[in-house]
Amino acid sequence: MSELVNVSNLTMVYDKKKTALDNLNLTIPRGKIVGLLGPNGSGKTTLIKILNGLLCPTKGTALINGNQPGPETKARVSYLPERTYLQTGMKVKELIAYFADFYEDFRPERAREMLTSLGIDENDRIKTLSKGTREKVQLILVMSRDADLFILDEPIAGVDPAARDYIIKTIITNYNENATVLLSTHLISDIENILDEVIFIKNGTPVLQATVEEIREQKGKSVDAYFREVFAC
């Protein structure tokens, strides 16, 4: 089975009136960095939440490694949400122990290396860290796993350009070639160079799935320029 993620007829309707995903079908291959791109409210986060088992779809299925979201998929998916989920009373080293306890693929030594390189003290409590540092700790924890699928929801939104570079470097250096990174963003120009494929999503429906090369060759544009054209208001 070459596809890692297989989404079919996925529909999500909130409160019986707001359709976030509309009969969505897509597949995501292994070993790629895939950009899930779309304007605000296009359904990116809803799709990501369903893949992580944080939402139940109204209709359709989302399979990872052939499994519905559940304990088996969660053991193989490393998820970075767009918000900080760390318990503020915990120390960084306690979080490392927490991740090591629950995720067999978590590599504490890798996390410690990254923390050291960023000058973050393991003994610090999360509540004493700045918002930016908390986000970095979270990214380090997420990227210190040998997961099959990394799902990163807006990983570079709201951080300064230097941190942005660090995040992108971390993503590239910490995932293995058999793993897939699915990252959603609307800051396309910053991550375009690391993407293998893109999925454009609009009103809960994918309007394009192509490799970055295909877009550049066939459209004669960068992904960012093409995105602006497709989603022009």
């Binding site: 944080l54 304990p71 949400p81 918000r83 989920y85």
Partner: peptide
């Protein structure tokens, strides 16, 4: 807090039932 606020994003993505 642990189940239904931001912390829930970690709680509900642990590989547990």
């Amino acid at each position: 807090k642990n189940m239904y606020t931001d912390e829930g994003y970690l709680t509900h993505t642990l590989p547990v039932t």
